[in-house]
Design a protein around this nucleic acid. Sequence first.
DNA 1: TATTGTTATACTCTATAACTATA
DNA 2: TATAGTTATAGAGTATAACAATA
Lengths: 154, 154
Amino acid sequence: MTETPKQTVPVERLRHGDLGDDLSFLLARANALSVSAANTALAAFDLKVRSYSVLALVVGDERPSQRELAEFLRLDPSQVVALVDDLERRGLATRLPDESDRRAKVIVGTTAGRELFAVARRATQRAELEVHSALSAKERELLADTLRRIAYPR
Amino acid sequence: MTETPKQTVPVERLRHGDLGDDLSFLLARANALSVSAANTALAAFDLKVRSYSVLALVVGDERPSQRELAEFLRLDPSQVVALVDDLERRGLATRLPDESDRRAKVIVGTTAGRELFAVARRATQRAELEVHSALSAKERELLADTLRRIAYPR
DNA sequence: TATTGTTATACTCTATAACTATA
DNA sequence: TATAGTTATAGAGTATAACAATA
């Protein structure tokens, strides 16, 4: 195997049409490429974008509850249970009782969790850079600003 | 019900961190919002983004084969079978034999398919505009150009 | 031998409802 | 009554392997 042909004929043939130029479709396709690159990079750490995202939110000092994780990641609370279960089983995060609300549990990353996140983060950022390699640093910055306005509507 | 609060507390609290500013995450979140808006709009026509995408590619005059559809949409050929089955069952598309390759089948939209696509397209474009309402026409144009470079790498 | 479409199957993801303990 | 977390379950989406017909 010498060079993997990233772009083959059908894509060229079909991309010019109602769909291929649609903003939502471009968003979806760019995201699909980005997600599969990230998942490939994360596989080495037994993580996926989902579990990596939870880990990322949990190793900071925001100390989110499961409900907050669910809302931010647009997941059902029951899905977050499974994700946190997994991280907890692997010693990467812990459930702590919320002092002010005894129903709620605050999720915090362990030292092992922080360490794994650090290396996983470097790997995903490398993969991400690859996916966005067609863009300059300035263009990436601008793209992030634009996407932020869509991702966090008021 | 007067005004649905689109943005609640946890999102504000968590969006400033390693994850919330990550380009890939912003892409994923923007796409999630876009997809769910599109699916809501398409539900009225018994379509989803998947089936709508196939329909869109099939009502033009590119006459793609199933393999081409699979490759362009980044789906497994077996998934395309199910999608085309559904469109065919509903009289929106037909499988025609490819003259030059008797293994392949060319998928073409029927008149009903073209008509449904036309109205569904208006609905999705309305929904899309809603999602991207924070952006000006010029910004949307620029965003499309940028995403195209990620979505169709060379 | 390789490829197109197909079938079957298993696995993951997602959505929903119901339950408990707290508020 | 409502909310946080949990459990169970069913449905949708995804990935894989194997097959027939054709190249």
